[in-house]
Simulated scan of single mutants.
Amino acid sequence: MNIHREEDAMAQQDRERLVELKNVVVEFESSGGTFRALDEVDLSIWRGDHLAVVGESGSGKTTLGRVLVGLQPFRGEFASEIGGARSALTPARTSRQRRQRVPGDISIQMVFQSSESSLDPRWTAVAAVAEATARGKRPSAAQRAEAERYLTLVGIPPHRHRAKASELSGGQRQRVAIARALALKPDLLICDEATSALDVATRASIITLLTELKHDLGVTLCVITHDFTTARALSDTCIVMKSGRIVEQGATAQIISNPQAEYSQQLLAAVPRLQVTGPRPADEPLMSALDRTILTGQKSD
């Protein structure tokens, strides 16, 4: 495995390690035999990190996200350090244990790719957010007020707070999903391809929103994506996954500008190059031009 070693070890000592995975393995049984979705993965996420997990379909990145949020049984060790106390979870090996938990007092929430499947279409936006904080009970007036605050924070106008999920656009539903996750005050927010199903303009607005939230709220962010431009917009550090393994990790900008793993080079080479009129400025790097194209809709060659 090729690794960019840019982290300052002394600086890390002053931060909390929210996630420490060691030798994590996830396997699925099928008619063709055993498929290893995660293959002895080691990973640390520190409070304040903005991490991207990049890879093509089948690389294991979504399975990794499901392990982090407590939805996927696994073998190995999952530990966290909150407030100076370390707690570890070493789950059973069988996939029969469906109610996995994350260690200690850490709170991890996930925003999924499809807001249609994660939101009840019959519920209003405010009900969807308030219900999450009420944890199965009837939301109080204070919880509903807090839900409205988070909806406003993510850009849902007050006159849409009582619209049903089925009446909202795809971008608005994704904002509601983000508000619901934030209302639970997570230590770590995971976004699993949260913008990939959206049109270019809506995708740009959600990326802008997440950028603002990570700075304004201090949210530690883990972005799961197949797209290096999204990774560059939202992350400082990056891991590249292939066939359930981490093949490269380091600063996002450094991996994009100087990828060491052959697979990372292949992913970057696969980024489409648009054929349009008007030259790209000579001093503008290709990835910068692609960022501008995808995030704003402005085209460049």
Rank of each mutant, 00 (worst) to 15 (best):
E116I: 06
R98D: 10
D120R: 14
H226S: 13
K214L: 00
D283M: 09
T230N: 06
Q109D: 07
I3L: 13
T63F: 00
L151K: 13
S243L: 05
R144H: 08
L286F: 14
I239W: 01
S196C: 08
K242P: 00
E148W: 05
G76A: 08
E262W: 11
V53K: 03
Q254C: 06
W123S: 08
L68R: 14
A197E: 10
P158S: 05
D227W: 06
E16Q: 12
A125F: 05
N258D: 01
R175H: 08
D49A: 11
T229A: 13
E29I: 12
I255G: 11
S118P: 10
R173G: 10
H226F: 13
D199R: 11
A92I: 07
L68G: 11
D199A: 13
I239D: 06
G65Y: 06
A92D: 10
P281L: 12
S166W: 05
V54N: 15
R180W: 09
R75S: 07
F228V: 01
G70H: 01
I255D: 12
I82Y: 00
T229E: 13
Q254S: 10
R162K: 13
A37M: 13
H159G: 00
S257C: 04
K185R: 06
E116Y: 14
V129I: 01
S140R: 02
D39N: 05
A134L: 02
R99F: 09
G33Q: 10
P139L: 15
T230C: 09
I255V: 14
S196N: 08
P272W: 15
G218V: 10
Q109K: 12
P259V: 06
T208E: 04
R273T: 07
G297W: 11
S117P: 00
A179I: 14
V247D: 04
T124R: 10
V129Q: 01
G32A: 04
M110A: 12
V219R: 01
A128R: 12
L221I: 03
S117R: 14
G104R: 06
A127G: 02
V219N: 01
N2G: 07
R101P: 06
D42L: 05
V240I: 15
L290Q: 00
E6Q: 13
V126P: 02
E56R: 12
D227V: 11
G60S: 09
F74H: 07
T94V: 11
E262A: 15
E212G: 08
L295I: 08
L188Q: 03
P259D: 02
F78H: 08
R292H: 03
A11M: 09
R47W: 02
V111K: 07
I256F: 02
L188T: 05
P121K: 04
T296Y: 03
E262Y: 09
C238G: 08
L21I: 02
M1H: 03
L153D: 05
L210K: 08
E81V: 15
T34P: 05
H50T: 15
R99Q: 14
G218Y: 06
